[in-house]
Design a binder for these strands. Sequence first.
DNA 1: ATAATATGTTTGTCTCTAGAACAATTCATT
DNA 2: AATGAATTGTTCTAGAGACAAACATATTAT
Lengths: 414, 414
Amino acid sequence: MMPPRTQASAPTGEPDPSRRNNLSLLTSLVHHHGVLSRAQLTRQTGLNRSTVGTLIGHLTSLGLVYESAPSGEGQVGRPSPEVHPSPSIAALAVNPEVDAVTIGLVSLGGKVQKKIRFETERIPSAREAVNIAAAVIAGMRSELDASYRITGVGMAVPGLVNRDDGVVRHAPHLGWRNEPVARMLSEAAGYPCQAANDASLGAEAELIFGAGAGTSAGQGNLIYLNGGASGIGGGIIADGQLLRGASGYAGELGHTFVRSGGSACHCGATGCLETEVSQSRLMELAGLSSGDTADLEEALGNSRSAAVDDEVGRQLTYLGIALRNAVNIFNPDAIVLDGFLGTLHALAPASLDAILRSQAMDGPAGQAKIYRAALGSDLMMIGAAELAFTPFLADPAGLGPTPGTIPAPASRTG
Amino acid sequence: MMPPRTQASAPTGEPDPSRRNNLSLLTSLVHHHGVLSRAQLTRQTGLNRSTVGTLIGHLTSLGLVYESAPSGEGQVGRPSPEVHPSPSIAALAVNPEVDAVTIGLVSLGGKVQKKIRFETERIPSAREAVNIAAAVIAGMRSELDASYRITGVGMAVPGLVNRDDGVVRHAPHLGWRNEPVARMLSEAAGYPCQAANDASLGAEAELIFGAGAGTSAGQGNLIYLNGGASGIGGGIIADGQLLRGASGYAGELGHTFVRSGGSACHCGATGCLETEVSQSRLMELAGLSSGDTADLEEALGNSRSAAVDDEVGRQLTYLGIALRNAVNIFNPDAIVLDGFLGTLHALAPASLDAILRSQAMDGPAGQAKIYRAALGSDLMMIGAAELAFTPFLADPAGLGPTPGTIPAPASRTG
DNA sequence: ATAATATGTTTGTCTCTAGAACAATTCATT
DNA sequence: AATGAATTGTTCTAGAGACAAACATATTAT
């Protein structure tokens, strides 16, 4: 049968764009939802069930997903097998901070398999952060080679990152400028590497796996704001797509103008959200000299001081101005607050809502709901890994075979 | 040959998604560029030249494009015929304003064939605007039926418009609230109708046919700001897509916070860009009691008054704050200023640039270039028409046949 | 137990795109 | 003026992929 192809496409040649697109669609669905029955996949994709059958077979033979026995839910009709993302497909995540570099291993489906926090004596340079990451990855190497297929490394950096070339333009708190971290880590670790702004990745992670997953924000209009010791970062998802901008710098909501005559910000302007709303001021008032967001939340919750109340109110007002702007501009479904911004909101949940209701424009204000972030300390790992999963998800069949697995022959015809 | 199809897809049944997608791609390219040779289409789409041949043949037989003799440019090789958008494919555009309702006919390729400005004694109600538009369209009806295929009607409304259902949520200057204008006009005019915010449509029009067409903003990161007698409207295009938000309300840059303690805005907040930067203040200072943007520009250009200079400087400062925010958030390639904002910028071209350079963050500031709008009075017509073209462009083959044209039989096999 | 329902599986057909071979048309060179 | 090189349109064929129909299977409802 099947006459020898005259000279057709190269052996590794990509299949039809249509096929690639459908495989990508299925893989992404399984990745995002964790588990889905074949019947659900059929409905969600709109594809024919025979087509889904073929495609899932293809993905299974590639080792990207596996099927398990139907859960036996009380449904009429033949039970549909469940499709799971293969835990052996994984991405590495790297997140440099002022006091540590965290390296993680995240498998398809967004499950954090491993997380190693490497504390540093002082703020790491880009080279140091890369070396630390590369060393930890080297240590994991034999395990990775034996049991995983790594799609790549994603790096979440607190600063402006050009997503196209992986160069950190400026990370003020780390003191990095024009560091080509993606290339550096790629060379040092031996895996393809990409880098992006941490809050942008946080936004994606919260949308897919966190606060946005259950809500109507699943439609894809979400604003994520994270308040940390070093400032406020933001990420925006519009119509399902992360807002990147011309070079991937988009999303810097921390430098929204909120006050005339405010003090100068390190960014060069005055009156930025980040200078008016800061964790350190709250820490001082709460009488904490050190500690993290959790400590702060406890201290503020127990405080009965008027000064604390005033400052909380003040900061909520400025945060409200920034959110009002953002709501008018983006008309989001959801606003997700993380870090101490989540704390602020939790202290007076009605406050921000009221500000939006009264100050934002009627239409958009009615829709935006404020949530607290849900992913906690796994957020950066999941977000960074997503960066490395993205190219894989766009062409799932393009990945090499799983180690220790005999790749199934493509021909099932005959 | 070809056995009678068992029962295959319904006669009007849509073809393969792949085919639809490719037809859409080609039609959009031709629409946006006006003229393209087949060879250029082949390169830009990445499709095979035989495929492009088939597809163009299909589009030609549908009457959507036509080919003309090669321009005979000095190129080696066989000349490639030029593909033009058919001028008989057209959309209707409607733009209600405080003092007039303008109705236009725009053909594929963005050419305004006809524009009728119907001045009103007083601010038109939604019903009046719809009736005026329907009456003008009815008057054109025989001509339309004879020579055009109308893809639909697009309405550009100065206010918050829910794009999904075509309901005007609030158009403050027209005094409209919750008016289902799309449905009203659709019923009155007998064509499918959609509505959207005027500045959003302006952003699309400027990106495709105006200031964004030649520049790197063709990549798709553009901010459009229009200043008119009644306020400031904004539209944002991110990564090639118009920012819509959860309900299509996105883009309201006119209500960016720019000043603490500013006066109250009709939107409910204080310190909005729109209240601080206004055409009427400039008109007063320039000694104009009435007139349009052109009059204002002339008066300001000739003025030597210090009060005028101060006010221009003051407004530029506030505009700069709003632009600084927008640049930090969107990292655009281009900022397009229209109306009196274009005038302000033209009066002191270095001013806004300097503000961005010093106040916006390093990365994004370096890329954003400020342009003046290029489409002038055709802008709203082109933008509104684009709204009606969009569904057509997504499925060009779905449109009915051209009047007076015998539809080519689908079968060319035999 | 039987019917109804939902879903996996198999098979054949149809549509669409790419590629090869050929034809056409222009510019450059001799 | 003739020839060659380059580029593109045209025709034909083949291969890939998705869908629909028919059948098989597994569960719930009666």
